[in-house]
Design a binder for these strands. Sequence first.
DNA 1: GCTATCTCTTTAACCGTTATCATCTCCGAC
DNA 2: GTCGGAGATGATAACGGTTAAAGAGATAGC
Lengths: 348, 348
Amino acid sequence: MITVKEIAKMCDVSPSTVSNILNGKNNMTAETKEKVLACIEATGYRPNYFAQGMRRQNNKTICIIAEEICQFSTPQIVESIMMYCEKNGYRTIFINLGMYNKWDNKGIKVGSLDLIEENTKPAFLEAQAIRADGVIYVAAHGRALDIVPENYDIPVIFAYGFSKDNKYKSIVIDDEESSKVLVEYLISMGHKKIGVVTGTKENYHTIERLKGFKSALKEHDIKYDPKNVINGDWKRESGYSAAEELLKKDITAIWCMNDVMALGVYDYLIENNIKIGEDISVIGFDDREIASFAYPKLTTSAIMLDDIGILSAKMIIKEIEDPSYRKERVATTRVPCKFIERNSVKKI
Amino acid sequence: MITVKEIAKMCDVSPSTVSNILNGKNNMTAETKEKVLACIEATGYRPNYFAQGMRRQNNKTICIIAEEICQFSTPQIVESIMMYCEKNGYRTIFINLGMYNKWDNKGIKVGSLDLIEENTKPAFLEAQAIRADGVIYVAAHGRALDIVPENYDIPVIFAYGFSKDNKYKSIVIDDEESSKVLVEYLISMGHKKIGVVTGTKENYHTIERLKGFKSALKEHDIKYDPKNVINGDWKRESGYSAAEELLKKDITAIWCMNDVMALGVYDYLIENNIKIGEDISVIGFDDREIASFAYPKLTTSAIMLDDIGILSAKMIIKEIEDPSYRKERVATTRVPCKFIERNSVKKI
DNA sequence: GCTATCTCTTTAACCGTTATCATCTCCGAC
DNA sequence: GTCGGAGATGATAACGGTTAAAGAGATAGC
């Protein structure tokens, strides 16, 4: 692999001259500059990233650690982080933990969410090894995270997840407010008896979304009935079985805490010839691709993934460049979701 | 940031001893080893990646260049590449081109597939700058790619796309064979008059899948009628309008070259009260999430994304470690898709 | 007691780039 | 004619690790 020294020798100049030309210093003759650049073009020379990184101590790199690249929310958040960082002079390094899709020795996927610390620690240390200026942790499974190693001296931001005890700045969606908007929409459509299918118990999103539900009911003087709230687990089947149970009760609408479960509810309703958006209204959360492809199209709340990505990139760059901001303890930032009205709710 | 020298001083040994311990040389007393490791643990020391990479010239890094991380196929391919590389002692660096989702200056997305070379060249040069041992290019838009810079001295493999003139080894899905399997299934279910909605014209996948279609018909002595083949563009709307047109003809089944268009066909059929999987059969390609969530569930062909990822990782490592393999010109590797029978096709 | 052997540790060179400082040339001012 | 200063280029050291080779210390054999 060709080096500055070789370029310098070929052009009869010193290595420093070559370096200066490449780094935009402008105290050399146009002639020299041209000669060197031509030689670089011809040889396809590129400065060695490692040598550069070692010499200039700031290497302008942000490390993105993603819990789960195969989670629907992750790619878009990651893409917008990368876009924003690049536009602002930072390179990004991406580490995927693939926490849920673990692989066994034979390369076969095995689901598991355990061993969080064991999985994340090496990634944080890796970020340290590459002397990243900052780390953005892109979560995928709403829970309080306490995973940053002790005495970690690089700025860290949590995107789409949050740090336990608010130790690090976090950006999450505004689960409570967005849920409230959804439920208020149902109420405005005349629904007062609303069934709920929750996410996994104790999950952050579940708790917050339920808060929003209760607060919407309260503001409209509707009594909260815990019997109409069924525990789900975010998966399709749990929507199906929750629907079965809810339909025994006196309700006119079902709100599922994600779109996948809402389509599980669809499964049950279709199977039992109950007309969705007519006999019963259904509403979801997330606005995944499946929501707009379902029939009838599912009314839901869209997570603003680009906003989350861009905001977290902005924040990490600010932490890097403004040490006083880094010390500031800021409350979790909540990004509102966008209500998407489609055809799964009927006015009654 | 703490360095070997500091660790060495703290432990009263020389830097090389620390280095030797970290690199698994075993010619030191257990006592020394323990002392040093304890100190490293306590201080959270990590060797500087740049210094390491510079000194040992092989840095065991594979660069993944993805055309489009937000394309449904990409994350899973990337994850399996990363998994396989990691298991085999290679680090991965990820670059997303986000070719379709371009961003303007204000950070707003603007679709565009132009300027391929302009977009890809910097990524290949970046791979060179980090002295990657190999590059895997993960494509997303079926087309012949001629994007590797001249005199590129790093091994390159194309995953889910292919290199023009077979210059580099490529791994693609077996469009033709998989399509043939789908169409033969339709035929086995009694369908002889099959409408087709293609992808964009001149797209590689479109051409290959049509070949498979024709070959299935031929083997069963069914005449190919180009009037039953409507040009689509992979998008939902084109499925919708193609359905409108196809239903004017005398057909019993519609094959769409991807699931998205198949659900566009669903849109039209539902709107017109035509029973899918009863009055008319529909079949897709890709097996995206939407396929199994549609009603009735869409019969389709699943792309084996993990297989593609693992295979490309295997191949790049082989090219890196076996120079003679690198010189070998190998025909494009075709990974078969997996037929998934669901409920959108009726036996007639 | 001296050398040979073995084990463990240190020394010093090196990777490729760039910041810093030094040098050299040229030109105009006094 | 000398001096100062600006502009262009060059020499050197340093970044933080790894590694080959040399060194030191302990033990064993004669």
